[in-house]
Computed example of a mutant assay.
Amino acid sequence: MSADLPEYYFRVRENGALVFRVDTQNRQRRIDMDQIAVVNIRNGEIKPHGDRILSDDDLEVIRDWMQERQEVLAHRDIDDIHRAVDYMNLTTQWAQSRATEEQLEDVTDALLLAMHDLRSVLVRKKADRLLKGNQ
């Protein structure tokens, strides 16, 4: 089992990760994880943990992970938006066919405000893109 483990482990946090070096080559033959760095995806910062000095290999692995993580998060963002479109369609069908008056009363104002806000942003952004395309 230990031969299949990666050399590094990234414990994901909201804005990045804690980076650990995985060690299985010890006398007790157990898995040791030694924290070597803290990574911030938002600003690209890599902070060595404690008094550590990160090797070029460490930095390369961390930067590669950061790039892959940013790609995963970007994919998730657009996937979430596509799901939101599906939810809007399902909500429309629910309101049309199954919702009771009490249920509609409960959600109508919140939905109308959210849709108005979204529409305003989308229209403004679309107009900005059209204006940029004409210049």
Rank of each mutant, 00 (worst) to 15 (best):
D4M: 10
L5A: 11
L5G: 12
E7Y: 07
Y8G: 06
Y8A: 10
R13Q: 15
N15S: 05
A17T: 00
V19Q: 07
V19E: 04
F20D: 03
F20L: 10
R21Q: 13
R21A: 12
V22E: 10
D23S: 08
D23M: 12
D23P: 09
N26L: 06
N26A: 03
N26E: 02
Q28G: 12
R29K: 13
R30P: 02
R30D: 09
I31M: 09
D32T: 04
D32N: 13
M33P: 10
M33G: 01
Q35I: 02
Q35T: 01
I36N: 12
I36C: 09
I36W: 07
I36T: 01
G44L: 00
I46P: 00
L54D: 00
S55I: 05
D56V: 06
D57G: 05
D57S: 12
D58M: 04
D58I: 00
L59D: 09
L59K: 15
L59Q: 15
V61W: 07
V61E: 14
I62S: 07
R63S: 03
D64E: 15
Q67Y: 07
R69I: 01
Q70I: 00
V72R: 14
L73T: 04
L73F: 06
A74W: 09
A74T: 10
A74Q: 12
R76K: 08
R76D: 12
D77F: 08
D77T: 09
D77V: 09
D80C: 05
I81A: 13
I81P: 02
R83P: 05
A84V: 06
A84K: 06
V85Q: 11
V85N: 11
V85C: 00
Y87R: 08
M88L: 07
N89H: 07
N89Y: 11
N89Q: 10
L90N: 14
T91D: 01
Q93E: 12
A95Q: 10
R98M: 05
R98V: 12
R98T: 04
A99Q: 00
T100V: 11
E101N: 10
E105T: 15
E105Q: 08
E105W: 09
D106G: 01
L111C: 09
L112G: 00
L113P: 03
A114T: 06
A114K: 03
A114Q: 04
A114L: 05
M115K: 09
M115C: 03
H116F: 01
D117T: 04
R119P: 04
R119D: 04
V121Y: 13
V123E: 06
R124H: 00
R124Y: 05
K125E: 11
K126Q: 08
K126L: 03
D128K: 09
D128Q: 14
R129H: 07
G133P: 00
